[in-house]
């Protein structure tokens, strides 16, 4: 699962091209990164728009998200559950997830 292409801008454009006007901004292609990242949305809300007490990703920059995820994986950042989850992914996968959420509509 390492080394898949990470092209958030292109992917977003593709998603927009497919979507009818009414749904622009919510639709996107179901590629490998989307499937991997969308698994996070159960806790963090669709597109990272958390509606409750879970941290939201909307408005966060990719680099900021990457650092947090790397630190969860290494244990440098204190966590309740994210340390356990981040360890399951490679650094490349965490970066792709961060790019994905940073590219989603705010």
């Amino acid at each position: 699962m390492r080394g898949f292409p990470v092209t958030p801008v292109l992917r977003l454009a593709f998603g927009l091209a497919l979507a009818p006007l009414a749904l622009v901004g919510t639709a996107h292609a179901a590629d490998q990164v989307a499937v991997m990242a969308d698994a996070c949305s159960g806790c963090h809300g669709t597109d990272g728009h958390s509606v409750g007490g879970m941290p939201a990703f909307s408005g966060k920059k990719a680099d900021e998200l990457k650092k947090v995820l790397h630190d969860f994986k290494s244990g440098a950042r204190e966590a309740t559950v994210m340390d356990r989850i981040a360890k399951a992914y490679s650094v490349e996968q965490l970066d792709a997830i961060a790019d994905y959420f940073a590219s989603r509509k705010k």
Binding site: C43, H49, S50, V51, M54, R84
Partner: peptide, 30 residues
């Protein structure tokens, strides 16, 4: 990777996870 919460955690840790439980529920329902 994965697994369960640590044993012997303090009150703040358990309270935080209780708050996250509610946040979890709100998010997954959305």
């Amino acid at each position: 990777s994965g697994g369960v919460s640590p044993m012997g955690a303090n009150y703040q840790f358990r309270k935080k996870e209780a708050d996250f439980a509610v946040g979890w529920y709100q998010s997954i329902c959305q």
